[in-house]
Design a protein around this nucleic acid. Sequence first.
DNA 1: CTTGCGTCCTGCTCGC
DNA 2: TGCGAGCAGGACGCAA
Length: 282
Amino acid sequence: MPELPEVESIRRVLEPELRDLRLARVHIARRDVIRDPGGRRRGPIERSHLGVGSRLRSVDRRGKQLILGFENGSSTVVRLGMSGRMEIPTGRRGSVPPHRHVIWTFEHPDSHSRRLWFIDPRRFGGVHLAVDPGDLSDRLLGNLGPEAPGLRPSEISSALRRTRRCTKTALLDQGVVAGIGNIYADEALHRAGIHPARPACGLDRSEVTRMCRHIRAVMLEAIEAGGSTLRDHRLPDGSPGGYRDQHRVYGREGAPCPSCGVVLEWMRVAERSTTYCPACQT
DNA sequence: CTTGCGTCCTGCTCGC
DNA sequence: TGCGAGCAGGACGCAA
């Protein structure tokens, strides 16, 4: 389940591998993974919208979205959803994985061409095409809140104050803060000592400050470790992320709290499985 | 407007 | 041992 740390880890591998290469072709094995609901354009996909013939100028990330920026002004936004991953296949052997929906082929000046695969068994993810920077910022990135790794209290305090939703639900809302998913919401709230079901509007200033500090810390540590591999997440070379070993609560219900030793409890918040410490989190 | 719930989808785990 | 039910959940559409 790629959240911001997983996407950022993937981005860091892709950027030096692919930047400045010319995109020779794109093969779309499954048409319906190209999603542009409400997009400016309908109908057939044009080569220029895919960046074909253009150089890849940037590999960026905003929240959980991976953004390939091409010289012609178009951008390809990849959302990994639940089970999506990006792979740069190495060499000629190795079997073709199932659910390989999109193949980008880049020309390499002095070696064989380099390919990039989008693989997504559950297809909660998808690929969005922005025709120009305005299209990208308005339609695809326009509703995202501030980035989680640099989150300041002033950036979310008003959003939290005006909602009665559970604090965890608010953190999962990408418009409130971009990049947090189920794993890191549980981890950050545990470290901050805040109960996931606390109404967001009931947090006081010091709690919001503390929560932001722990969100930043969890994000940076997880990025450093290459993200959390539970089952699906892999870096583009196939290696797993190592942050799972540092999870304090996620997936550990019934085990002792690493801070106080009390048995961690499980509950459902916003239809999401949630693990927390009934003693540390109030 | 805010909020919550159903839907999408496949693969893995668990219980009988 | 085999099989089916249940579960995992990010984003979005829709309804109250």
